[in-house]
Design a protein around this nucleic acid. Sequence first.
DNA 1: TTGTACGCGTTATCAT
DNA 2: ATGATAACGCGTACAA
Lengths: 340, 340
Amino acid sequence: MAITIKDVAKLSNVAPSTVSRVIANSPRISEKTKIKVRAAMDELGYHPNFIARSLANQSTRVIGLVLPNSTDVFFQNPFFPTVLRGLSDGANERQYALQISTGKTDEEIYEGVIQMVQGGRVDGVILLYSRIEDKVLNYLRDRKFPFVVIGKPFKDVELITYVDNDNYLASKEATNYLLSLGHKQIGFIGGDLNFVVTIERILGFEKALREAGIQSEDDYIIHSEFLREGGQEAIGKLINLKNPPTALVVADDLMALGVLNTLLEMNISVPEDISILSFNNVLFSELSQPPLTSVDINIFELGYQASKKLIQLLENPNEPVKRIIVPHQLVKRFSCSETK
Amino acid sequence: MAITIKDVAKLSNVAPSTVSRVIANSPRISEKTKIKVRAAMDELGYHPNFIARSLANQSTRVIGLVLPNSTDVFFQNPFFPTVLRGLSDGANERQYALQISTGKTDEEIYEGVIQMVQGGRVDGVILLYSRIEDKVLNYLRDRKFPFVVIGKPFKDVELITYVDNDNYLASKEATNYLLSLGHKQIGFIGGDLNFVVTIERILGFEKALREAGIQSEDDYIIHSEFLREGGQEAIGKLINLKNPPTALVVADDLMALGVLNTLLEMNISVPEDISILSFNNVLFSELSQPPLTSVDINIFELGYQASKKLIQLLENPNEPVKRIIVPHQLVKRFSCSETK
DNA sequence: TTGTACGCGTTATCAT
DNA sequence: ATGATAACGCGTACAA
């Protein structure tokens, strides 16, 4: 059995409650006894028991993280380690711990969240993704359990606190950049349409084309999980159109890598034959051949702001619902060039 | 306040202790009351409180994960999401939760672990890396706190339970493969020498050369964090040797990507001019140009076995110390070819 | 300024 | 087969 508050109390000749107050650094305790008690704590090597504290407090100082389906390719995205860094920094600053929950099926994930929440394991939850119809989100909202979403919620946008980029604008700007290079036939390769981010990016893309007076063609838009089979064929179709696009907006760096590879196998050069612009700017986007021009969405900051905001929500009972928009920035490398 | 065991007791006209027994599915409770009590639990939507249970049990059913320094490039390695999947699967199977701890400095990480352990937040710990001198490992060992290491411990190998590949053998085999292709001048590019895995791989490499009767040259061995500045120069030096290597063993796929890139900028073709073989076989090793020949180390399994083993350690007081070796396999793609 | 006593939600021991 | 009661370690209202 470990050292408890009682042991410290005995050694320093005070009541347990006094020790408790010293831990909380209550102003109602004299400096003298504080010193005395702290000496005893040091001598015994006392460490407060979080579990007991949680029970007494009705608060755990633990944040639950909900990751997407671990069997998704998406799960392997370097996005996660990076956002985790941000989350961790934000949490550590205020002495919160992080508990993660994921699963092989949506049902497993949902069950995991229920365990965390109903079991009282966590004070609040951060969703690391945003999907169109999300059982987990609905559950948390209905229960009025504190949570923050990374990404834009699909509905009830005004009722949910979230941290996101302006993906619509980012995609519009990215597309405009390609337009400014003279491209008129621009394709879009997106991921799973169940993720809100995909939708936002495609809308921004289409908006830019419309503003430029260009009719967007359905043939130019592809959705698929690129790192799986099928991605290559899709690209093949696109390239074999009578009027193939001269540039592609790709919704994610990892997908862009796949596209790059497929194009290379087809002997199509980037950016000479076709330009590629993608999103996220993860570590290896500069390690591809050619290095990718990519929209940096500041992944670390997404995580950092999310945990910071959730903690505010937890500690301030009437903290208002709020959205936090993290800035993005186009990083130009060598995968885009002017049309000939 | 949530529904407690007492509410259920009242509704079903039994004592709280009876409800507790029903939850534990004690054989000493009649089927009749079990049914009655379960009905009451359903009606009220009761969920057991993990915190209270932990306090009473002196056991949390939470596993602490210690990640490496989050500012390391290493942290961004797709290794982590993958190993996390395995850890998570193993933990979920036995209803354990996962808590993560990381930090920006070694000191921060160490403090985090102390919080987890002394604070009673976790029952056991898994180290997701293995370094030469590790404060955290020493701390856990000295305290006799249950833990498992992913990777081979640097010392006290017989006293520590760990899950690892046979990296020595893997590296030896990999090098032999290059030798079998006719290469005689083979270089090694490793990462941080503080990681035991780096050491094992370099030793296996050297052993293979020795067995082939080839003198290993110091000039052929490079250590650096490749994705940082400096990596390029190091490669440059290697290539500009009078007798440059015709093949390279690279300790990690991510590094290999960097190497590939540098070589391309120097107009050196892989595998025509130089062969490259790397380790880990993460998702994008097949997305590089050319796709990497890489040693698959079964990252998922490393994680899965680690959490499984730790749980055994926790639930079985005299579970023996053991090492678990996960098999590896050379995956041949297109970054290695015969010497001309 | 400090001590006493109770509660947080469970499990476990000891009765019955 | 079930109930009463005491822990588990800490926080806090109330008393002193």
